[in-house]
């Protein structure tokens, strides 16, 4: 009996090592766990795209923003602030903190850039999500120029309730961004609940995002 136990020790050690190595096979080494999960979303205020390009606010953007406001997806929550009802940016403050604007709501932050090819890949999915009016999607254009960002949105469609510009990359650092596209979900208490690195896929949306939103009670 004890002989069998003794003989099975090497097998047990082998299985243990094999289990660890097997785990390693299925892991994505580029997926670094974010320390932000279940912590408050960074509050940094950022320039709105509209403010940076007030000289060329396009009519199509005005229509898009108006329809978003009609749907109740436009930023709300900051008491007595004229900026929240303003879509074009003429009377908006020069900068906005999405975490403050969307306090009390479940919202999504999508980090993108017109220079990022992965962002183009996921863009149709964002458009579809926006059309569903599941939750407000804030776009953070990471190290992009306002003109190029606008061009991109005109070409591929604008799924964003609000587009913020991170010209120097500082906000992206605050969010722990290391490779666009990255997507975060922030709950009604302002806590980061989800982070996805890389283009969103149907699998991610179906398998992770929707169940999470259902739990968080996103309307």
């Amino acid at each position: 009996m004890s002989r069998w136990i003794r003989a099975s020790i090497p097998l047990a050690v082998f299985l243990l090592i094999a289990w660890f190595l097997l785990q390693g096979l299925h892991r994505n080494p580029r997926e670094i766990p974010s320390p932000l999960i279940d912590r408050p979303a960074p509050l940094a205020a950022l320039e709105r795209l509209q403010n940076l390009e007030h000289h060329l606010a396009s009519a199509s953007q005005a229509v898009a923003t108006a329809s978003l406001q009609g749907s109740g997806l436009a930023p709300t929550g900051v008491a007595a602030s004229p900026s929240v009802s303003d879509g074009i940016g003429t009377s908006a403050p020069s900068s906005s903190s999405p975490a403050a604007l969307y306090a009390g709501k479940v919202w999504m932050l999508n980090v993108w850039g017109s220079w990022c090819s992965g962002c183009q890949l996921e863009h149709p999915l964002l458009n579809a999500l926006a059309a569903e009016r599941l939750l407000p999607i804030v776009g953070l254009a990471w190290k992009d120029s306002p003109a190029q960002a606008r061009q991109w949105l005109d070409r591929l469609g604008n799924p964003y309730s609000l587009v913020l510009m991170d010209l120097d990359g500082k906000a992206a650092i605050d969010w722990g961004v290391y490779g666009a596209p990255e997507t975060f979900v922030i709950d009604a208490r302002g806590m980061v609940r989800f982070k996805h690195v890389g283009p969103l896929s149907d699998e991610v949306v179906r398998g992770q995002l929707r169940p999470l939103l259902a739990r968080l009670g996103a309307s």
Binding site: G113, S114, W115, S117, W142, D168
Partner: peptide, 11 residues
């Protein structure tokens, strides 16, 4: 489309 961000010269 180049896969590089817009350069932002930092002081």
């Amino acid at each position: 489309m180049s896969d590089k961000p817009v350069p932002n010269p930092l002081a």
